[in-house]
Amino acid sequence: MLPFVFEWQWDIGHGVFMGLFYLALTIVSLGVVAALAMTFYDLYSGKEVHEEGHGHEDPWADYSYAHDKADRGEYA
């Protein structure tokens, strides 16, 4: 799994396999870190929580993903 483990060899097999594995792990962890950073930004910039999560007239009408996009004006 790591280059200092006995089975490790610097060959194509290990390069491709482990490269893709660590790439996937990196992307996922960076994603989570980004979400955390955005959360801290939101908190410290004093953004208010809308009542019951999503302060639209009908909280279910354009829920979750769609509402994220609406926030960013992608539906406009």
């Binding site: 908190l43 410290y44 004093g46 953004k47 208010e48 929580v49 809308h50 009542e51």
Partner: peptide, 9 residues
């Protein structure tokens, strides 16, 4: 109501 917000204090 949302009275939280400044939790970091």
């Amino acid at each position: 109501m949302a009275t939280h917000g400044k939790k970091q204090d």
